[in-house]
Amino acid sequence: RGFLEKAAVKKMAKAIMADPNKADEVYKKWADKGYTLTQMSNFLKSKTAGKYDRVYNGYVIHLD
């Protein structure tokens, strides 16, 4: 289950990176699912340092 969630989160993160207008909708879905910042950090780990920082930081702001 965790692997599928991670894959889904990364897919949506890539969608945000391609079209930032989708961010609020995606952040709301993640918040509704109760994803914590720790979970998001783990889901968005990448071999490329900083690749998903913008998405993660946007989610931090959304939760605030």
Rank of each mutant, 00 (worst) to 15 (best):
R1A: 14
R1K: 14
R1V: 15
R1D: 12
G2W: 15
G2F: 15
G2S: 11
F3H: 13
F3N: 13
F3G: 13
L4Q: 13
L4H: 12
E5S: 06
E5F: 06
E5I: 12
E5D: 09
E5R: 08
E5Y: 06
E5W: 06
K6R: 15
K6D: 06
A7R: 15
A8K: 14
A8L: 13
A8P: 03
A8S: 10
A8F: 10
V9I: 10
V9R: 01
V9C: 05
K10V: 14
K10L: 14
K10Q: 13
K10W: 07
K11G: 06
K11H: 08
K11M: 10
M12R: 04
A13K: 02
A13L: 04
K14N: 13
K14P: 01
K14L: 11
A15E: 13
A15Y: 06
A15V: 11
A15P: 01
I16N: 01
I16D: 00
I16T: 01
I16L: 06
I16V: 11
I16M: 05
I16S: 02
M17Y: 04
M17N: 05
M17K: 04
A18V: 10
A18F: 08
A18R: 12
D19T: 04
D19Y: 07
D19K: 05
D19E: 07
P20C: 10
P20M: 06
P20K: 05
P20H: 09
N21C: 15
N21R: 13
N21E: 11
N21A: 12
N21Y: 09
N21H: 10
N21V: 08
K22L: 14
K22A: 08
K22E: 06
K22V: 13
A23F: 02
A23V: 03
A23K: 06
A23S: 08
A23M: 06
D24K: 11
D24H: 11
E25G: 08
E25M: 11
E25H: 07
V26F: 05
V26Q: 04
V26G: 03
V26M: 08
V26H: 03
V26N: 03
Y27D: 00
Y27V: 01
Y27C: 02
Y27R: 00
Y27Q: 00
K28F: 04
K28M: 08
K28E: 07
K28I: 07
K28W: 04
K28G: 08
K28Y: 04
K28T: 09
K29C: 15
K29L: 14
K29Q: 14
K29P: 00
W30L: 02
W30Y: 02
W30G: 00
W30Q: 00
A31C: 15
A31R: 09
A31Y: 09
A31G: 04
D32P: 00
D32Y: 08
D32I: 09
D32A: 14
D32G: 08
D32R: 10
K33Y: 10
K33R: 11
K33W: 14
K33Q: 12
K33P: 00
G34H: 07
G34F: 04
G34V: 02
Y35C: 05
Y35D: 00
Y35L: 07
Y35K: 00
T36E: 03
T36W: 03
T36K: 03
T36D: 07
T36N: 06
L37N: 04
L37E: 05
L37Q: 06
L37M: 06
T38M: 12
T38L: 12
T38E: 14
Q39R: 05
Q39L: 06
Q39M: 13
Q39P: 01
Q39I: 08
M40W: 04
M40F: 01
M40S: 00
S41C: 14
S41E: 10
S41L: 10
N42K: 12
N42Q: 13
N42L: 11
N42E: 13
N42C: 15
F43H: 03
F43C: 06
F43D: 02
L44Y: 01
L44Q: 01
L44A: 00
L44N: 00
K45I: 08
K45G: 07
K45C: 15
K45F: 08
K45S: 12
K45P: 02
K45H: 09
K45N: 09
S46Q: 05
K47C: 12
T48S: 10
T48M: 08
T48G: 06
A49P: 15
A49H: 11
A49D: 12
A49F: 09
A49V: 12
G50A: 05
G50Y: 04
G50H: 09
K51A: 08
K51R: 07
K51T: 07
K51L: 12
Y52V: 02
Y52Q: 02
Y52C: 03
Y52L: 03
D53V: 05
D53E: 09
D53M: 07
R54L: 13
R54H: 12
R54G: 12
R54K: 14
R54F: 10
V55A: 06
V55S: 01
V55Y: 02
V55R: 00
Y56R: 02
Y56I: 13
Y56S: 01
Y56C: 04
N57L: 13
N57E: 14
N57T: 09
G58F: 03
G58W: 03
G58Y: 03
Y59N: 01
V60M: 12
V60I: 09
V60Q: 10
I61D: 13
I61K: 14
I61N: 12
H62M: 05
H62T: 03
H62W: 15
H62C: 04
H62I: 03
H62E: 02
L63G: 02
L63D: 02
L63F: 04
D64M: 15
D64G: 15
D64Y: 13
